[in-house]
């Protein structure tokens, strides 16, 4: 499944598991879809399709948002939380902390939508849990 396939199939679905999906393609060298769920417009999920996997990434916060002398404690906490969080993992992209999930390139549309919902809910949950480390 490539990005434009994915975009049109998500648009066709319009809602899944009780959530409204909004899908915006982002122009650039690599095609990326910005997908937001009804109640969670502040936490968009970015989906890109590579040769081997479908990557869904949600930005959590930037370096600047972390209380500097609590950073290492927070990162320990994130490592501890990585396994309990279902289907999603923490990572870092440049100066941003992110949460992401990777799917097989052969996943069906339901799997992908389910992943996006889980990821968005996990992102909110994670920010809530890590709030004490943020300025």
């Amino acid at each position: 499944m490539n990005t434009s396939d994915l975009a049109s199939r998500i648009s066709d679905l319009s809602s899944f598991e009780g959530y409204q999906f909004d899908c915006q393609p982002i122009p650039g060298e690599t095609e990326v879809l910005q997908i937001t769920l009804g109640e969670f417009e502040e936490l968009p999920c970015f989906v890109s399709v590579t040769d081997t996997q479908i990557l869904c990434i949600t930005y959590l916060f930037t370096n600047d948002e972390v209380i500097s002398d609590k950073r290492s404690e927070m990162m320990e906490e994130m490592l501890e939380l990585n396994i309990p969080i279902p289907l999603s993992s923490f990572a870092k992209l440049g100066d941003r902390y992110v949460i992401f999930g990777a799917l097989s390139i052969t996943s069906n549309i339901e799997d992908i939508c389910h992943e996006i919902i889980t990821l968005t809910e996990n992102a909110l949950e994670a920010i809530d849990a890590l709030e004490e480390y943020l300025v």
């Binding site: 982002i26 650039g28 060298e29 990326v32 910005q34 970015f46 890109s48 990557l55 992209l93 440049g94």
Partner: peptide, 8 residues
């Protein structure tokens, strides 16, 4: 991923 981040 780097290209995607740049685009975003």
């Amino acid at each position: 991923v780097q290209k995607a981040s740049a685009a975003i």
